Computed example of a mutant assay.
Amino acid sequence: MSEYLDIPAGRRIAFQRSSGRGPGVVFLGGFKSDMTGTKAAWLHDWAREQNRAFLRFDYSGHGDSSGSFEEGCIGDWFQDAHQVIEALTDGPQVLVGSSMGGWIALLVARAMPQRVAGLVTIAAAPDFTQQGFWAGFDDAQRQTLLRAERIELPSDYSDQPYVITRRLIEDGRDHLVMDQPLPLSVPVRMLQGTADADVPVDWAMRLLGHAAGDDIRLTLVKGADHRFSTPECLRLIGQSIDDVLA
């Protein structure tokens, strides 16, 4: 059953958490996903078996949280994560970020390093609004976005199209992490499937090369897709958290 946190920005954030020992684990979901997804649910059960504190939540405009997805942007969702971690967890946390959640996790690590014990990213997509959407648009699409303030793209995960707004693109530029130094003093485990059609392997390689830290590792899983939700992939996520905690 979801609980709710009202944050100062006026948004109501749905969350589920379970108590246990620390450092706790916080799951940060992907673009237009919610906390009922396979990875989030698996991690909930994993944490309970480990007696590990665990928190999952829906960004505003996602799942059971307030707001409209189309009105949201990276800055809003980063703020949601920041507020949730600050209000609902104690001490340093291991952040597990999937796709867009990997970008959010990096922003959180930059903003509140004292509250981060480690990072596990799954097909991390830092700066995807710029290096994915905007870079992939042709001139006509860019003009449509600037003129109409929005553009619709087909989704492989839903019958409903992705609505990409001008605000999402422009706000994304204010939260880039690949255009400036990215020091990470905590253990980092990056997971990436070679058959991922949404986040290319070379994004993972670029992030590995760009991030600075003494304990950063990238694991490539041959044949794994963007969902990264097979039993083998899920077990690897758990093993990566154990590795960070060790």
Rank of each mutant, 00 (worst) to 15 (best):
M1S: 11
E3V: 01
E3M: 02
I7C: 09
I7P: 10
A14C: 12
R17F: 04
S18P: 00
S18Y: 05
G22I: 10
P23R: 07
V26W: 05
F27N: 01
G29K: 04
M35L: 15
M35T: 14
G37L: 08
A47K: 08
R52A: 01
R52E: 01
R56Q: 13
F57I: 00
G61Y: 08
S68V: 02
S68T: 12
F69L: 11
G72W: 02
G72A: 12
C73E: 09
G75R: 06
D76G: 08
F78A: 12
H82W: 12
V84A: 07
V84Y: 06
A87I: 00
L95F: 07
M100A: 00
A105D: 01
A105S: 14
L107R: 09
V108R: 07
R110Q: 12
P113C: 02
F128A: 09
G132N: 07
G132Q: 13
A135P: 04
A140Q: 06
Q141L: 06
T144C: 06
L146E: 15
E149A: 14
P161E: 11
P161G: 11
Y162Q: 15
Y162G: 13
T165S: 15
T165H: 06
R166G: 07
P183V: 01
P183R: 12
V186G: 03
A195M: 04
D202E: 15
L207V: 04
R217V: 08
G223N: 13
H226E: 08
R227A: 15
F228M: 10
S229F: 05
T230H: 02
P231T: 11
S240I: 03
D243L: 10
V244W: 05
